[in-house]
Design a protein around this nucleic acid. Structure first.
Length: 702
DNA sequence: CAGTGAGCGAGCTTCCGCTTGACTT
């Protein structure tokens, strides 16, 4: 007669069973168990939006096991995650079990919640059971119904106005909009040329200085302009003319200089918190070029094998037990100086975070890269390694940097130049980051000392447009704006990719002609839904439902009435045209030009005279690589399941195939630099406040 | 390994969020 405990994940079930002993049977629901029907709306719009929940097909087996066990159990303890979705799962589990039993049995249900999976936390939770929070369940119902209404009402309009099989939704359509709007911002952007001036000055010892002021006026300035979400800042200098730049170089070459000021100050650098799903995906994308999907599947395995805590989380919290084991590890390995006096606590900025789990951290701090590499291989080990380093660093001391600025002025007082140096005084958390900061050491210049020019040059730059999104920056933006959840970031991108709305090139997202057509249609007709603030407003209302301040059905009604009206109006609208790209190739049947169209299976070439001429041929994506086996051309191909791989154009005569891009030795032309420089950079996850500084590629004007 | 687009109008596509499997040229 064991008590039944229901959790969501089987790994959690296994862990908890170790804590609770033989009086309990722990079972996993494997996530949601009830949902709206797939093949119809499933919401009774005319009767208070009653949802028609049914058991999920793939959960029936689990549910029958749950039911039969519950029948024998004296008590059912609902220990699903402590958030909106978890509360709904608990309610659904109860509903299904009660369904077959006498109502008098209701009293045997208890709801417990815990925020960390430790023996103490679970035991404490068991001492404080409560009832199911119906308001919280209602908030989940509202969320589910709203998403269903938006998705299942908008998508069919796209089928009739654009093409079959397309989709729209509260989350995916905003993600698409971000990408399309970014492309438009890039199109609008006017590149501007500007110059910086650099001088190597010397009095025996030398350093490179940069011109910062002319006649007491700063030459560097910033220009901001609004983009779809937030603003974009470009840093330029006031020197925008080559003749002017040359004149300055000439002046400086002839001038003498004196040190007018030496400024020293100490700066601290603090570690970032342990990873959340979002920051892990961002870092893996930046460092290794991995997609969110790939990162999550590697993390899933690490989690199942017990190496890391749960990987779908928005929490920065680390259990006190883990904090103290990190601290003693740091003390043992690096010494007392490397642990801060008090443990560091990190708070989530976003109000939208639901904090049902811990941050992502290693479960055993002694387990290192090598151990994981040995057990699971290098792909897993490098993900584990960044998780380990972030978690350990998060509890280490700040780094201390001494920064030195030397200011010099030309003899005629017209020009002011500056050199910056920095020396790492104490490495702190940077100790475990192998890409530590490089010291820039300046000679010991003294105020009043005079210096002579050795080499003066102007460097030409071009202001850079905002970058296209990649996995990292899109996920960062979605998370910041509360669009989507940790369990869905990777699938959001997969969805808009598989609908052919966007295309990946060198890891960056480009909207396709279909994506642009769908986006513009949605924006012009449903801009209130298809916009970033919609989700934030929805979350506010869901909070009010959860607090009991509002009832869920009227909230949905307030949204649905105007939405329904718009839907009716839009049905009158004309079909949407998709732009086609004309090629130079001619149709073998009627000599018409071939155009590139996007169909359900991606791009294909078709005669421009369709429907009169029905000629089509596949679109082959070529690369500039050559096959290492037989020297043929490498082309991008797709598997049955749609996954891309690199293959030889001489297939089947040559069987070369690779999931990853063949190595640079086989590259015919040199690689496009764009988009690769972000990968191996050190440093912490930044928020998506875009800012472009001077272009890194620069050439010299003498 | 075919097939994709338009309309014809059979029957079908589609959402978000929670969780793991099964499977790969």
């Amino acid at each position: 007669m064991k008590k039944l405990v229901v959790v969501e994940s089987p790994t959690k079930a296994r862990t908890i069973s170790r804590f609770l002993g033989s009086g309990y049977e722990i079972m996993a629901s494997m996530g949601h168990i009830m949902d709206l029907p797939k093949s119809k709306l499933g919401v009774d719009v005319d009767n208070g939006f009653r949802p028609q929940y049914e058991m999920m097909e793939d959960k029936k087996k689990i549910l029958s096991q749950l039911k039969s066990f519950a029948k024998e159990s004296p008590e059912v303890i609902l220990a699903t995650d402590p958030d909106r979705e978890g509360e709904a799962i608990a309610a659904h589990v109860k509903e299904i079990i009660v369904g077959q039993q006498a109502k008098s049995n209701e009293h045997k249900f208890q709801r417990i919640v815990f925020h960390e999976i430790t023996k103490e936390a679970v035991e404490e939770a068991l001492k404080n059971p409560r009832e199911i929070d119906e308001n919280l369940v209602d908030a989940q119902t509202a969320r589910r119904v709203l998403d269903r209404l938006v998705g299942y009402k908008l998508s069919p309009i796209l089928w009739s106005k654009v093409r079959r099989g397309l989709s729209a939704g509260r989350v995916q359509s905003v993600a698409l909009r971000l990408i399309v709007e970014r492309e438009r911002a890039i199109e609008r952007f006017k590149k501007e040329r500007y110059y910086t001036v650099h001088a190597v000055l010397s009095n025996g010892s030398q350093a490179e200085f940069e011109l910062i002021e002319i006649d007491g006026k700063k030459i560097e300035f910033q220009e901001s302009f609004a983009v779809y979400v937030g603003s974009y800042t470009v840093t330029k200098t006031s020197i925008d003319d080559e003749t002017e730049a040359k004149k300055i170089v000439e002046d400086l070459n002839k001038s003498k200089f004196a040190v007018s000021n030496v400024i020293k100050k100490q700066a601290k650098r603090s570690p970032g918190p342990a990873f959340t799903t979002s920051t892990l995906q961002q870092e893996a994308s930046r460092r290794f070029g991995l997609s969110g999907k790939r990162t999550m599947s590697l993390a899933q395995k690490l989690y199942e094998e017990g190496y890391i805590t749960y990987h779908r989380t928005d929490s920065l919290f680390v259990s006190s037990g883990a904090v103290s084991s990190i601290r003693s590890y740091v003390q043992k390995s690096f010494g007392k100086n490397y642990i801060p006096e008090k443990p560091k606590f990190y708070k989530t900025k976003s109000k939208l975070a639901q904090e049902a789990h811990e941050a992502i951290r290693p479960t055993k701090i002694e387990v290192n890269y090598d151990k994981v590499a040995e057990a699971l291989g290098k792909d897993f080990a490098r993900i584990y390694d960044i998780i380990w380093k972030r978690a350990v660093a998060s509890q280490m001391a700040d780094a201390v940097i001494e920064q030195t600025s030397v200011i010099v002025t030309s003899a005629n007082n017209k020009y002011t130049l500056k050199a910056n140096g920095s020396v790492l005084v104490f490495d702190g958390f940077l100790k475990i980051n192998q890409q530590a900061l490089n010291d820039t050491i300046l000679p010991d210049f003294k105020t009043g000392e005079s210096l002579n020019p050795e080499k003066v040059e102007a460097r030409e730059h071009e202001s850079a447009p905002p970058p296209r999104y990649n996995d990292a920056s899109l996920i960062a933006m979605l998370e910041e704006k509360g669009i989507g959840r940790p369990s869905t970031y990777a699938t959001i991108i997969s969805t808009i990719e598989s609908r052919q709305y966007i295309e990946r090139q060198e890891g960056r997202f480009f909207p396709t002609s279909v994506g642009i057509a769908v986006n513009d249609f949605l924006v012009s007709n449903f801009s209130t839904i298809d916009d970033v603030p919609f989700t934030a407003e929805m979350e506010d209302e869901l909070d009010q439902i959860a607090n009991g301040e509002k009832k869920w059905a009227p909230v949905i009604k307030d949204f649905y009435s105007p939405f329904e009206k718009t839907l009716e109006d839009v049905k009158q609208a004309a079909r949407v045209k998709i732009e086609v790209e004309k090629t130079d190739e001619l149709c073998p049947l009627d000599q018409g030009h071939l155009v590139v169209r996007i169909g359900r299976f991606g791009k294909f070439k078709a005669c421009e005279n369709f429907p009169a001429c029905k000629f089509t041929k596949p679109f082959v994506e070529e690369t500039n690589l050559i096959c290492p086996k037989d020297g043929g051309k490498i082309i991008l191909k797709k598997t049955k399941k749609g996954r891309k791989f690199y293959g030889c154009s001489n297939y089947p005569n040559c069987d070369f195939a690779s999931w990853t891009k063949p190595t640079p030795e086989h590259v015919e032309r040199s690689e496009i630099p764009n988009g690769n420089d972000h990968r191996e950079k050190l440093e912490d996850i930044k928020h998506p406040k875009e800012s472009a500084s001077k272009d890194e590629s620069s050439k010299t004007v003498s």
